[in-house]
């Protein structure tokens, strides 16, 4: 039986969600030998506004590249959480930034709340890398792509000279997620 895993990364323009989605897709497709697509939705404005990036991972052909029944939703703003949680499938995972999202929705899904942006700012030293911290969380929570593949994809994709910073961000998110999953 083939599987199809749908991830939506949502927040606002400038948070690097498109890049994070592309890294996830590359980790799965190039390094884990799966099929993957990444697509995005954004408005006509140059920055700001709602942003969303979707990644579909499957061991089969991917017909429709958009999410219809989400396995994992990342919400980095209250607005994106309010707007998209209804698209989660039964038993899906809602991962939110605990500082940005304080009104949590209720439903038949699991909520994981963690200070993603705060960790990027305080532990890694740059709020800018919150997208990569989020990737660490996603790897730790879902296990859908391997740690090794994600590391390779991050190194290959982030701007030259920022590899170490981004790998630290990834390791930070991954460690936190593993702690959370133990409890």
């Amino acid at each position: 039986m083939s599987f199809r895993y749908e991830i939506r990364l949502s927040g606002e323009g400038g948070q690097g969600l498109v890049l994070a989605g592309k890294i996830l897709a590359e980790a799965a497709a190039v390094y884990d030998d799966l099929n993957a697509t990444q697509s995005q939705s954004y408005g006509p404005e140059a920055r700001g506004g709602a942003s969303r990036s979707e990644v579909i991972i499957s061991d089969d052909e991917i017909d429709y590249p958009k999410a219809v029944s989400i396995d994992l939703l990342l919400a980095l703003t209250q607005e994106s959480c309010d707007r998209y949680y209804k698209d989660l499938k039964k038993g899906g995972i809602l991962l939110v930034d605990s500082d940005a999202v304080n009104r949590l929705p209720e439903g038949e899904f699991r909520v994981i709340s963690a200070p993603i942006i705060g960790l990027a700012r305080e532990r890694v030293g740059r709020a800018l890398v919150a997208n990569i911290v989020a990737l660490g969380f996603i790897a730790g929570i879902s296990g859908i792509v391997s740690e090794k593949s994600l590391r390779s994809a991050i190194e290959a994709r982030v701007p030259k000279g920022t590899e170490e910073l981004n790998l630290t961000a990834f390791a930070t998110g991954l460690a936190e997620a593993r702690l959370l999953m133990k409890n």
Partner: peptide, 8 residues
């Protein structure tokens, strides 16, 4: 969609 989708 085809222009912007990332795919293997």
């Amino acid at each position: 969609i085809i222009g912007h989708v990332n795919e293997r």
